[in-house]
């Protein structure tokens, strides 16, 4: 039991330190954005509506995951709520791709003639966030399956706890990026 607690604590720390390094990664990208923007020659454009839908999807998914974790802690099943989170995560990914389509329709390109660093940054940064989120989707899928086959109990829900920390972090990261792109 003692060893288990130690291991749980270590796994959580591993995840948190991993999150710190992801923060540094996006910190690097967004500060590059600020420095580049300050140099001028910056194309201004509207954020696609699909990105707002992304924001709603990920916030609601986080809420569902919160309830799922609470259910499991209370000894109830969290499977359906986990499944809901997963589906909203997929919706998020879909809306990101739609958002890129909207940007292209507006004439904002990643590359080539007529492209501008402002657009390239949006594509590069949102793509990187999406790649991290796909990692989260894989983790969520595994957690949902494990929940379905009854692997989690009210004394043993480390998997859900870890996936929650990561997923909420991805949500916050998206909120930061969304507000950053909209208001910076």
């Amino acid at each position: 039991m003692q060893l288990n607690l130690k291991k749980n604590k270590a796994s959580k720390q591993l995840l948190w330190i991993g999150i710190v390094s992801i923060v540094m990664f996006f910190g690097g990208l967004t500060s590059a954005y600020i420095v580049r923007k300050a140099e001028g020659g910056w194309l201004e454009f509207e954020m696609p509506v699909w990105f707002t839908i992304s924001t709603v999807a990920i916030v609601v998914s986080s809420a569902l995951l919160l309830f799922a974790a609470q259910n499991v802690k209370a000894g109830k099943s969290g499977t359906s709520l986990l499944l809901g989170t997963l589906l909203l995560g997929i919706l998020f990914s879909f809306s990101q791709i739609q958002g890129w389509g909207d940007l292209v329709a507006q004439g904002v390109y990643l590359t080539g003639e007529g492209s501008n660093a402002s657009g390239s940054f949006i594509y590069a940064i949102t793509l990187m966030h999406l790649l991290h989120l796909i990692g989260g989707l894989i983790a969520l899928t595994i957690t949902t399956i494990k929940s379905k086959i009854g692997k989690y109990t009210k004394d043993n829900y480390l998997g859900i706890h870890l996936v929650s920390i990561y997923w909420h972090f991805l949500g916050l990261l998206w909120l930061y990026l969304f507000l950053f792109f909209t208001y910076s």
Binding site: I22, L29, A32
Partner: peptide, 12 residues
């Protein structure tokens, strides 16, 4: 952990 991710963002 704090500095290598920034190298990655730079390389990206």
């Amino acid at each position: 952990v704090l500095s290598f991710p920034v190298l990655l963002s730079c390389a990206l």
